[in-house]
Structure formats: C-alpha cells, structure tokens
Computed example of a mutant assay.
Amino acid sequence: MRPEGGSGVEMQIYMPDGSRVELAAKDRLIEEILKELKINSEEVIVTLNGRIVAEEETAGGSDELKIFRIVHGG
C-alpha cells in the first residue's frame, strides 16, 4: 500500500501477520493509521520506534511502527 504523490520517504509499518506496509510520511495519529489499515485498535499493541505507544500519539516521517495482535484465551 503506497499512496501516490509521496515525498520518497515512507513510514515503515510491520503488520501483525509479518508483512510490511509503507505509508506516506505525513504526520498522523496512530489511531488514524490503524483505521486506514482496517485494524481494530482494541485488538493490538503498537510500538513506535521501539516503544509502546497509545493511539493518541503521532507518527510520520521515517518512523517505524510495529503492530502486535493481542492474544488471549483460556
């Protein structure tokens, strides 16, 4: 997934299934990124450049996001 008209710098996003997605480097809330990727924020933990962040944080530029699915059961 690569929006057109990008600046050549993409934000790297590592998906829960192990795949990688690049998004244009514009700053946006983690919450917006998850919505764009059709990921329920209540089912994942997100790290931004190696630290766990809330969905109210902003990411952009050459940031690296990793999205981990929360596994639960009994």
Rank of each mutant, 00 (worst) to 15 (best):
G60H: 00
Q12S: 15
L48H: 07
M15V: 06
F68E: 01
E42N: 09
G5E: 12
V21Q: 02
N40G: 06
E36P: 13
V53C: 01
E55H: 08
P16T: 00
V53L: 02
N40T: 04
E10V: 13
I45H: 06
K26P: 05
E36N: 08
I30R: 01
H72D: 14
V53M: 01
N40A: 07
Q12M: 15
E55P: 13
V21W: 04
D27H: 11
N49S: 04
A59D: 02
E42R: 08
V71F: 08
I67Q: 01
I70H: 02
G50Q: 03
I13F: 10
D27M: 10
G6D: 06
K35G: 02
D63G: 06
E22M: 15
E4R: 11
E31M: 03
P16W: 03
E55Y: 08
I70R: 01
E43P: 10
D17N: 15
T47V: 14
S41E: 12
V71Y: 07
E55C: 10
E31A: 05
T58Q: 09
E31D: 10
L23W: 05
I52T: 09
I13P: 08
G5Q: 12
H72W: 14
Y14E: 13
T47P: 13
L65F: 05
E10C: 15
K26S: 07
I33C: 01
G60Q: 00
I67V: 10
G8C: 12
